[in-house]
Amino acid sequence: MQKFISVTGVAAPLMKANIDTDVIIPVKRLIGYQRHELGAFALEALRFLPDGSENPEFVLNQPRYREAKILVTAENFGCGSSRESAVWALASFGFQCIIGPGFGDIFTNNAFQNGLLLIRLPATEVDSIAAELAGEPSPVMTVDLQDCTVTTPSGRQIAFEIDDERRQALLEGRDEIGMTLMRDAEIVAFQERDRAARPWIYDTTPRAVAAT
């Protein structure tokens, strides 16, 4: 996983609630593409019109937001399906950070597994950042994970909170599988104890059953 220390770049306001993972990446794109190719289809249903041409109204198609690295969005972004492709699509489109009032639970885990920083701020704060971005010819923001602040185009600094374990993992670009494998002795000890306490969990030999 790539390290995340800080990012300075264009931020785009996409103030629509409940953007689900089917909208972020449609299911037909889950087969036959590499992770890094999925950016072409990120938010496909919003970015393109039914005839396949770009939707000029959509925020990410407007010239000043085209190079966005930060997405500012409304409540419950990433709800729905567990597809990690939603995160791969956003990352491959160029997003490194998403700011919103709240994110889907499974999407949140997937984002942090891939170095995509999610920042939760109160809805009123998010709304005011979005309003600032909408009125700004050069909507550039800075997100700093070392001191946990967001700096808006006008220079306003907003502090955010994040689980310490997740923050460290991002700062170090940590590989969780590698980290957990180093704890194998603890897993072995756990399973030994658990096998004695709940032996039926570990016996997975099926028995023949009459058709029901």
């Binding site: 374990e165 997740r166 460290q168 704890r183």
Partner: peptide, 8 residues
Amino acid sequence: VTELSGGV
């Protein structure tokens, strides 16, 4: 199995 740091 074990408590990691930071609430994980």
